[in-house]
Simulated scan of single mutants.
Amino acid sequence: MAVTLDFVKAISNKPKPQTDNLQFGKHYTDHMFTMDYSTEQGWHNPSITPYEPLTLDPAAMIFHYGQTVFEGLKAYRTEDNRILLFRPEKNLQRMNHSSERLCIPLIEEEVVMEYLKQLISIDQDWVPSAEGTSLYIRPFIIATEPNLSLAPSNRYKLMIILSPVGSYYPDGINPIKIKVENQYTRAVKGGTGTAKTAGNYSSAYKAQEKASNKGYSQVLWLDAIEKKYIEEVGTSNVFFKINGEIVTPMLNGSILEGVTRTTTIELLKEWDIPVIERRITVEELFQEYENGNLEEAFGTGTAAVISPIGELAWGEEKMVINNREIGDLSQKLYDTITGIQTGKLNDVNNWTTEVK
């Protein structure tokens, strides 16, 4: 698909960070993509310009009512120097799903995909090649109309910024400690839990802070009504291997549908490993642990791909899972997904898209 856009080249290029010291979200490439929306013109003025600060009216509605959505995906450099995206169409589909929930105008997914590929192509020298590194891609939309009325904005800005990032596990893929959250609520059916929107994450800070102060990496959220059904981890969906069968919470109107979650389920089915999406209580999980049936637990998400869980705290109880070691299935999923992402394994499902 041929798409045209304005391009303003950066006068000078930034110094690139050392790939052995890349931190998440600390460095940004030379250029960014922007596109505006108004009710009169629709989406218009697609541009790639030098990365620079924004100028917004203090009354811009994003500041006051939080009308925004975002996505996160990655570009990977292969050993033969190609650049691959992993299932990017699913991220743009989910962005439109989020936008619909937040009353934000939908984008033309195929057109924006081409804009995204052009941006990466222009800044392709920023895609790192070291083991475990990638180029993180953050598309997002904000409401820009200066208006304090409590109603959807009539103006928006879509932006895409790029950031080279290192391995999520600097010391290897090690199991993490997670605390079950009994007090605070992440999302409720009918709310914005299925949308990737800013407020979902900032409202989780308090629970995360409480867990971090006790030495836990993440929070495991329960349902908002009965506080007993497992939903998801702070930054990922969650899976449990119970007596040879994989169980993950079913999508219920408050759980974000992760791209890595979908990929994991599809791979498990390909491997003829039983996988069930259903409601599961934390009490049931603890009982399975007591019975010796809880064999593995792991989260799935873009940032870490697979996050093995070595310890799960529920009130005063603790579940030490698989001796705090990564399980065989977690390792196989991690190796397979990252292998496809980086071109080391054959992509038989056509999940990758090459940027040329």
Results as ranks from 00 to 15, higher is better:
L267C: 02
G172Y: 00
K179I: 03
R278E: 08
T34W: 03
I160D: 05
E79P: 01
T342D: 05
I326A: 09
I83S: 04
E311S: 15
V111R: 08
D20H: 06
L150F: 10
D335Q: 15
R87S: 01
I255D: 01
Y65F: 14
Q93H: 11
T235G: 10
L267M: 01
I273Q: 11
D6K: 15
T352P: 12
E114F: 07
W126L: 07
L56M: 10
E257S: 15
L56G: 01
E257Q: 15
N182K: 10
Y115P: 02
A60G: 04
K210E: 15
E257H: 15
P17Q: 06
P53E: 13
K269P: 14
K189H: 06
R82V: 00
V259G: 03
P139W: 05
K196M: 03
V112D: 09
T55P: 03
A143E: 12
G199W: 09
W126E: 04
V127M: 09
M159D: 08
S99D: 06
S47V: 12
E110Q: 15
A151S: 14
S134L: 11
L106H: 13
Q67R: 04
T353Q: 14
F7H: 14
T194A: 12
V111D: 02
V259S: 03
I120S: 08
S163D: 05
M159T: 12
K157G: 03
N13Q: 14
L158A: 01
E231T: 15
Y289M: 07
